[in-house]
Design a protein around this nucleic acid. Structure first.
Lengths: 357, 357
DNA sequence: ACGGTTTGTCGAAGCGCTTCGCCAGCGTCC
DNA sequence: GGACGCTGGCGAAGCGCTTCGACAAACCGT
């Protein structure tokens, strides 16, 4: 009967909808996109047909004709020293946010490297790119600059000219941790950071946190030691031992390595140092971790959710050719839980209930 | 000069390549796809032009014309009780494997639910779907059956008719753990499993492991207790206490909850039970975890890498209309490390060196 | 009542690619 | 030496959608 039937897959096409509703193909398109005024009557008829036939526009055809794939790429790191749960939170936040902008997410891993990015962008498979785990001197940065496709970085490279970046203000985060410990009267503190490899390859957040810690310590006249820290229990243990060897009076610890949080607590326990009675611990880690530890950890959470949302939102602005700020830094906030208390000599009320001394 | 120039994006089209190489558009297409014989001479000329112009086929156009998107969807869970690092390993394995088949991966989260699947499949955005974290009576299973698009499940639903599923043989995994403990002479053992919520919603792997443990214990005439286990340190501690209250002579522990592994060790230490001297521990968890624990854990690793590869490979077969087995179960293998030793009374040589008693 | 808008709809021209059918040239086989 | 089959290449017809220009019809002010 009709010129074109349904697809072999059984999916109806826009032509089927148009025929069913008794209108032109273009009218259906305009109803669906809202790019031209359509009368209430026609719109309803079309929408009814769409629902009845179970029509879903063909993504390829749409992308071809409109030059918009409605897909963004998310480049995730998968190498050592990355904080898996945080990455996962990012990913889900990004997917959720993207869906709210009617986009899907294509998953790339860093190890495809620059040519992966190039392939995706050149093939018009995606409208924009979101890159995580950016290094200070990342090889992908120049590529992104010249790629001619919208991109947003999660993390800060050394030179942000011509880019759009979002991140937690890790410098402030380091400061905030030290401020908290110093405020409780701790005079000798330490930072147990990311694995050495992470510093070595110039990952921004690790360096920035360390700088924040050092700076705030100096400001408060507090002695601070900083050490990288691997993720296995034995290594963590020896790091902690090393720390107390260097500085026996250590009473405040900042831990920026979610995988090390548990082992650190175990190591302290093994050394007979109670938390928070003898040592106060502040972690930079996802809230979930801090909540599940025992005692519950005072922490500066990494707002993966929020960063992911912001990143998508910025990327969408770029896709639509709207201006965006070059750098967006989120303010860290510290949540006090049960792992920090006033330094020895001052009254401690560390579990929320007033402890009758 | 020419009918069509480059795209506004600056990307050359197949027409540009054809013109540059002095051949027809279709010839370029055939060179690139290899679907028809092309002379050595022509092929080389075309390939040279492709490289010179930096040509990348437009994904949308290709998908439209060929009815192949060269993209697969990966549906990841993001709810409580999932084992984040394992999921991440799956994801990266899937991406890597997909790339080897010249496909990209679209990331979906479970919380978009069935209609997410429907949208993706109906819009022809993807050629096939990979679903993780399948429940015994998963709502998505009927949908997948009728979707008319290739799909592969990672995990086993109750009824696998008409599906393609891959998973570790968790039933065997449970058995293997018990076999190992029983072989070392342990007569009273326990399984600390996934969080209760995971059992409640009928997640296959948890039930299957438990069944395997129970069955093997019965076969060996060993007493076995099984308990679900949450992921926070305090809860784990009380579970462990509960276990020893029920069964003071407990000397073998199977732990299937990577987040609980650390806390379990801490709890045992706190109770004064040494591993492996007093209690042997076997974990079902990623190798990385087992290696990083202290003592290093005897474990049955979840071969995320391998499962991911298999899943992609099966999906590709389905995409190409080749037959696939309904269920593929991977054989578990147990790696002996430092957390298991012969039961008290038998000579222990738990760290590999003969321990002169 | 008449030009001038505005509003709502249509038709058609692509978007860049794949694929089918066709054909020119050339070696092969009785 | 003519029918035949290969090989290698060409041209054109779509794939399903968006978008542009055109154009009736309805509405406006005067």
């Amino acid at each position: 009967m009709s010129g074109r039937g349904r697809l072999p897959s059984g999916q109806p096409t826009i032509a089927d909808v148009a025929r069913h509703a008794g209108v032109a193909v273009s009218t259906v398109s305009y109803v669906l996109s809202g790019k031209r005024a359509i009368s209430e009557l026609t719109r309803n008829r079309v929408l009814a047909s769409v629902r009845l036939l179970g029509y879903h526009p063909n993504a390829g055809a749409r992308a071809l004709a409109s030059r918009r794939a409605n897909v963004i790429a998310l480049v995730l790191p998968l190498r050592s020293g990355i904080q898996v749960p945080v990455v996962m939170q990012f990913a889900t936040a990004v997917v959720t946010a993207a869906r709210r902008h009617d986009h899907d997410v294509l998953l790339l891993t860093s190890d495809e490297g620059p040519q992966g990015l190039h392939r995706i962008a050149a093939g018009a498979l995606v409208d924009g790119v979101l890159v995580m785990d950016v290094e200070l001197h990342d090889v992908r940065v120049p590529l992104l600059r010249e790629l001619g496709r919208p991109s947003v970085l999660i993390g800060l490279p050394a030179d942000t000219a011509g880019l759009t970046c979002v991140d937690l203000d890790f410098h402030r985060a380091g400061q905030v941790c030290v401020d908290h410990l110093a405020g409780l009267g701790h005079r000798r503190i330490a930072l147990l950071g990311a694995p050495a490899a992470v510093y070595d390859r110039g990952t921004g957040f690790a360096h920035r946190t360390r700088a924040g810690v050092v700076e705030a310590a100096a400001r408060h006249g507090v002695e601070a030691v900083t050490l990288p820290c691997e993720e296995n229990a034995a290594q963590v243990h020896s790091r902690v031992v090393e720390l107390f060897a260097r500085q026996p009076e250590l009473s405040g610890l900042v831990v920026q390595n979610e995988a090390a949080v548990g082992p650190v607590q175990a190591a302290l326990a093994a050394l007979g140092r109670r938390v928070p009675d003898d040592v106060s611990v502040v972690a930079v880690c996802p809230d979930q971790f801090a909540e599940h530890a025992s005692p519950r950890l005072t922490s500066v959470p990494v707002p993966a959710e929020e960063i992911g949302r912001q990143a998508v939102s910025l990327l969408m602005r770029k896709v639509h050719d709207e201006p965006t700020p070059q750098v967006t830094l989120l303010e860290p906030r510290l949540t006090v839980r049960d792992s920090t208390a006033a330094a020895t000599g001052a009254p401690a009320a560390y579990d929320g209930r007033a402890a009758a001394r």
